[in-house]
Amino acid sequence: MKILTSGNGDLIQPPDLDAFREWNRTQKSKALVDKVMTEKEAVERFLKDGDYIGIELYGTVRAPMSLVREIIRQGYRELRCAGQGVYESDLLAAANTIRELDWTYIGFEVYGLSASARRAVEGGYVKKVVEWSNAALSWRFKAAAMGVPFLPTRVMLGTDTLKYSAAKVAECPFTGMKVALLPALILDVGFIHVHRVDRFGNAQIDGISGFAGEMARASKRLIISAEEIVDEEITRQRPDRTIIPYYLVDAVVEAPFGAHPGEMSYCYERDEPHIKDYVKMSKDVEQASGYLDKWIYQLENHQQYLDLVGANTLEQLKLGEK
C-alpha cells in the first residue's frame, strides 16, 4: 500500500496485536468467577502509573465518576489517556494526573472551554497532545476490537487534525482512493459505567451505547462500575442486552449514582447546580483544588461522596420508573 503522507504526532500507544491475542488467551480468565470489589481495590489492583487509560462515556453522561475520583485520590501523576471528555477529563487535568493525551475533545459543551485542561496544556504539565477526530478515536478502538492493526477511513483528510495526529494517508490498493489509516488503540485499562452488571461482569447499558462496546474490546484490563449488581438470572434472561460480556471484565464495582454529577439515562438527571458550580470554580486554580479537596481527597470512598451530596439532592435527580 502506498503511503502518501503521515501525521507528525507520536503514536503514544503503539499497538501489538499478537501480544494482545496472547494477553487475551493467558491473562483473561474465561471462568465465571465473582469479580466484585470496591473502587479502591479495583484501581489499586489494575492501574499503575504510566498506564494508558480510557473512560466511557463522558463527563456529564454515564461516566464512571466514582472510579475517576478514586484514580485521583490514589495520586497517579503519569497517566496517558484517550481524551474524549468533559467534567471527568477536567478533573483529571486539575489533579495533574495526565502527561500524554490522544485528544479529540475536552471541553464543557454548553459551558465552554475546559479551564483545567487549558492550564495543563498551556502550562506544560501535559507533555504530549496528539489530535484526532471523535470518530477516529472510536474507530481506533474498533480496530483493536477487530484485532487488526489499523482501519482505513474517510475522515481527517486534508486537515491539520491529521497533520498533528499519528494517522497516515494511503492509496487504497483496491480502488485507488485516498484513505486515512487509523492505528488500533489498545488500552492498558478501560473504565466504563453501566446500568447493570452481574458479579461475573456481564454488563448491560440502556439508551445510547456511545463507544462502550468498542472500548471494552480494546482494553487489556476493564473495570466496570454499575448502578446495580444484579443476579446472573437477570442478565441471562436478556443476554441480547449484554453489550460487554464477562470475559472482557476484570473488576465489577457497585456504584449507585456512579455517574453523578452527570446523568444516567432512564435513572437520574444531571446535577446542574453541581456542574455549574464546578465549571465556575475550575477557572481558578485555588478554587479547583478546593473542589478536589472537598469532593475527593477528604473522602475515603463513593459512599462518603454520596453522603456529602446528600440523600435529598439525589432523590430529586431520580427519574420515575427505571
Binding site: 475533545y105 471541553g107 477526530s133 471523535n134
Partner: peptide, 16 residues
C-alpha cells in the same frame, strides 16, 4: 501546536 496561546476543545465530531 506544542505551546498554544489558547487550547480550545478540539475537533470532537466536527472534523467527521
Amino acid at each position: 501546536h506544542a505551546h498554544p496561546k489558547v487550547r480550545l476543545p478540539g475537533s470532537g465530531g466536527a472534523n467527521d
